[in-house]
Simulated assay, not measured.
Amino acid sequence: MASNISTDLIRGHTDTIILNVLQQGDSYGYQIYKTIIALSGNQYELKEATLYTAFRRLEKEGYIASYWGDETQGGRRKYYRITETGVERYRKNKQDWHFAKNVLNQLIEGGIQNEENKPGS
């Protein structure tokens, strides 16, 4: 699998990515891991250790809750679900992301349009 996206660019958005997956339905760790790979078009793989650290943090902060599933497929799985507070946090993070994306786009690709601001004028 090609990791075409720098981990540095993703860092800080891990929680929002997990909340996005969970707002689509309850899921367990390995399934969330596979969903993130699929959502990225196989361009990004979130390390499992990072994922489980984020689960603990999100649960401690009240954004997700966990529960044990039944034993239909061998072992019991720990499932995660997003809470109402988690949905609010996801919406806020998404709003912040859109704002930051627009500002970064201007900073990286933009040019100064005003002639008075050009050096030497």
Rank of each mutant, 00 (worst) to 15 (best):
E84L: 06
R56I: 07
Y63T: 01
G120P: 04
T72Y: 04
Y67L: 05
N117L: 15
W68M: 12
G12D: 10
A54K: 12
V103C: 05
G111I: 09
Y33L: 13
K34G: 03
S27T: 12
L104C: 03
S6E: 08
L19C: 10
H98E: 13
Y80C: 04
F99A: 10
R56K: 15
G69Y: 01
N117M: 13
Y30A: 10
D8W: 03
K60F: 04
T50Y: 06
D96C: 04
D8R: 03
G74I: 05
P119L: 14
T35K: 15
D26C: 09
R89P: 00
G41Q: 09
G62T: 06
I10A: 06
Y90I: 03
Y67A: 09
L46W: 07
N114P: 00
Y67C: 03
T16D: 06
T53M: 03
Y28H: 15
H98Q: 09
Y44L: 14
S40L: 08
Q113N: 06
Q106E: 12
Y79F: 15
T83G: 06
D8L: 11
E48T: 12
E59I: 01
A65N: 11
T16A: 15
N102G: 15
N114K: 07
Q24I: 02
T53N: 13
D70Y: 05
A49W: 05
V21G: 02
Q95A: 09
L107G: 00
I82L: 09
F99K: 14
R81M: 07
I17C: 08
L39W: 11
V87Y: 06
N117P: 01
L22C: 11
S3Y: 09
Y67E: 12
G111K: 10
G41W: 05
G75F: 07
G62H: 00
Y52T: 14
E71V: 04
I18P: 02
S27Q: 14
E84V: 08
R77C: 00
G86R: 00
V21E: 12
K92V: 13
Y90P: 00
K60T: 07
K101A: 14
D96H: 02
Q113T: 10
Q23T: 01
K60P: 01
I32D: 00
K92G: 00
G62S: 06
R57F: 06
I17P: 10
Y30G: 05
R11P: 01
E71N: 11
G69S: 15
Y33N: 07
N105C: 04
T85S: 14
G120A: 11
T50C: 08
S40H: 05
R56Q: 13
N20D: 15
L58A: 04
Y44H: 13
I82P: 06
L9F: 07
F99W: 05
Y30F: 14
Q113F: 09
R76S: 06
G75Y: 09
Y80G: 02
Q23P: 01
G62Q: 08
I5G: 03
T83E: 03
L9E: 05
K101N: 12
I112M: 04
K47C: 01
Y30W: 11
I18T: 02
E88F: 06
K94C: 05
A100W: 12
E84G: 11
I32Q: 06
I108F: 07
T14K: 12
Q73E: 12
N4Y: 13
S6I: 00
